[in-house]
Design a binder for these strands. Structure first.
Lengths: 234, 234
DNA sequence: ACACGAGTTTGGTACAATCAAATTGGAAAC
DNA sequence: GTTTCCAATTTGATTGTACCAAACTCGTGT
């Protein structure tokens, strides 16, 4: 079965969904602006409000519309971040299945291994200075548990931005938002923070010296250590 | 903005969504079985049918329920494939934006580079025999354009299955279903098929000899060649 | 020029009714 | 006894109307 999605089924709502979808992606319905009122749409499409409403709900679930409780629906042109919110529910469910967290974490390690290798091989001066800045921020926050957590994530985030491909930062957001709940419980002692920082530094150094193998090793050591913490919480 | 999803908003429909979501994931509502009738649900939750309907629609969009036009809604425990259909619309839109196809293709190359490296390092005897079988099938289909295309995809698919992580095959499905439309137009001459086959064989050989660097090189050469075809069609 | 408040717009929910397709169950046929 | 086939019923899809409360508008008064 290769993506059935929608076939012959011609629910009235689907017609509206398709039409609005086109208007949003074509720009006829401007980004960040409110959708026409339900009552107008119902008149335009010659259907009942129920149907219009269902269509809107559908678009909201697909991330093309932002739906706040009592407010006008707001048009949102999709970006790679939209994919995250659209998949959030499913992912969260999958994570609760046996091995779910491990599978996702393993994927993250896989990705970042490739990223640090590439960084070691192709990082520009600017990339490296970004990385250095992130590392410094990380060091400065050594004593501030809260801030350290943020800079930790930010450091990894730089790696995802090196390739200049918007898909990767989106993946980073996904990894952090889906996996960090499993981190939340883990004690963030100063000792631990220092060890994390040193890992980051090792990765940075290897990249600086253009040594992909060592960069990959350092990353694996880093993320394996983190994983052992996660494992304990189960 | 880190995944707002739903906040304070307490729409009545959301209550039902949450409840049914729990019943589905807990198994109280069995997989592949129809949902209770809307009228029963409306009585149970003490709401109008409108709300029940909206909730069902929402669950359908999230992939937890399959909704065929006039049939009973069917419960579907999500798997990693569900993510694909849930994101299909958005991805297809993103691909039409400038650089969209290239970004996705680049991600695919990135992933497969890691996969072949890992394969060269860690593939079990069974993995390798799977790969060999796929390669043979690919060779046999050299003269059958249709079949060759399938075995081409299958060969790459083996790589995604080596890690034993269900996320990767799902990614493969995504790549093929989202990118192959761009392949469709490209001429599949016998000459071209042979060149593709030889690329596959080079990758296989490198993996067999446990040489990750050569495997990666072979893969890059292979996918770069394919990309040049895609580029021409723009 | 600014704050305020009444009136209007709009989304959220409810209820009742109709239609057409799907499902079921029992009668008829083999 | 098993199968076939046609009602009767179930159920999803859609319509229309109505009401409420929150958001929004706009004009008034300070």
């Amino acid at each position: 079965m290769a993506i059935p999605d929608n076939q012959g089924g011609k629910r009235a709502a689907d017609v509206i969904v398709t039409a609005l979808e086109a208007r949003i992606t074509s720009g006829e319905l401007e980004n960040d602006k409110p959708l026409p009122p339900e009552r107008d749409l119902m008149e335009e499409f010659g259907t009942s409000r129920t149907v219009v409403r269902e269509a809107i709900s559908s678009l909201a679930n697909r991330g093309l519309i932002e739906l706040r409780p009592r407010f006008r629906p707001i048009v949102r042109k999709p970006d790679y971040g939209t994919l995250l919110s659209a998949t959030g529910t499913i992912v969260r469910y999958l994570l609760n299945e046996p091995g779910g967290v491990q599978n996702l974490y393993q994927s993250r390690v896989f990705i970042e291994r490739g990223l640090v290798r590439d960084a070691a091989l192709n990082a520009t001066k600017e990339n490296i200075s970004d990385l250095k800045a992130a590392l410094l921020a990380n060091e400065k926050a050594l004593d501030h548990s809260e801030e350290f957590f943020r800079t930790d994530i930010a450091f990894h985030g730089v790696l995802y931005r090196i390739g200049n491909n918007p898909i990767f930062p989106a993946m980073h957001e996904g990894f952090t938002s889906w996996l960090s709940p499993n981190w939340a419980r883990m004690t963030r002692s100063d000792d631990h923070n220092r060890s994390v920082y040193l890992d980051h530094k090792a990765i940075y150094d290897a990249i600086l010296e253009r040594d992909p193998a060592r960069a990959e090793e350092a990353l694996i050591a880093h993320l394996s250590a983190a994983w052992s913490y996660v494992e304990e919480t189960f």
